[in-house]
């Protein structure tokens, strides 16, 4: 069980000077409990604070206030690697690109072994990327879709108790989305992985047991998809929302 208790995040002071001399609050006094083994989709407009929330759970962003309790113990003060080693792993929305470091390096760090056979097993379990990826450099030459597949595989390789995937479908071709959803469902079932997916994609929203809608750093809705549909339609959750402001007759890019 992962409990968020009244968590807030305020950006560090004087980051962008004039506009916000005292920092800006991105997450406002948010409380939520992820039951163990649940598949939860987090959605909400761009800039609503989904990534910030995920990074607070991973420890990449430091809580301004509140507590995070994981299976009964307070992890609010743990460093990133300590949270990782108790079982929380985050797949980045914009994965880091390295110089020289390969997929094999990342996978063996995550799996805690560089045994070829074991790595091959993980790749076949993940399915969405081929064995030929293993010696690819995780650098700026990778396509957006390739790096997202690698990111996903590294999270799974760590065998997390809680896996958080931040928009895992960006850049992924249409034909891979289905298998990706299946994979996360299978990981949830077989390993009891608490699965949290930040996404706007219908396929993930439909796969989830429960849905969390973030709006302006607060929970706008939590519950099943059916209950969320009217709100989602009203928000017309769309990457270009800021351009068309949800206008009905605006020519949507999607």
């Amino acid at each position: 069980m992962l409990e968020l208790k009244n968590i807030s995040f305020r950006t560090p002071e004087s980051d962008d000077g004039a506009q916000s001399p005292s920092g800006r609050t991105i997450i406002h006094d948010l409380s939520f409990t992820f039951e163990s083994g649940v598949f939860c989709a987090i959605t909400g407009p761009n800039g609503s604070g989904k990534t910030t929330l995920a990074k607070l759970i991973m420890g990449i962003n430091e809580l301004t206030s509140g507590k995070i309790i994981f299976n009964g113990s307070d992890i609010s003060k743990l460093a990133i690697h300590e949270r990782s080693n108790v079982g929380i792993v985050y797949g980045f929305q914009h994965p880091a690109r390295f110089k020289g470091t390969t997929f094999r390096d990342l996978l063996s760090i995550a799996a805690g072994t560089d045994d070829e056979e074991k790595l091959a097993k993980i790749i076949s379990r993940v399915g969405v990327c081929s064995l030929a990826f293993l010696d690819k450099r995780v650098d700026s030459k990778l396509s957006g879709g390739e790096i997202k597949k690698i990111e996903l595989a590294t999270v799974i390789a760590k065998n997390p108790k809680v896996a958080i995937y931040d928009e895992p479908d960006t850049g992924i071709d249409l034909w891979t989305i289905g298998p990706m959803v299946e994979l996360l469902k299978r990981e949830q079932k077989e390993n009891k992985t608490t699965t949290i997916v930040v996404s706007h994609n219908k396929a993930f929203l439909e796969a989830a047991d429960t849905l969390l809608l973030i709006r302006d750093g607060k929970i706008g809705y939590s519950g099943d998809l059916a209950g969320a549909v009217p709100i989602l339609e009203d928000l017309s959750v769309c990457a270009f929302n800021e351009l068309c402001h949800g206008e009905v007759n605006a020519q949507c890019y999607r």
Binding site: H81, N85, L106, I109
Partner: peptide, 13 residues
């Protein structure tokens, strides 16, 4: 971001 990634896979700083 490279440091964060490796730490999120369990390595200390």
């Amino acid at each position: 971001d490279q440091l964060m990634k490796l730490m999120s896979l369990g390595l200390d700083y």
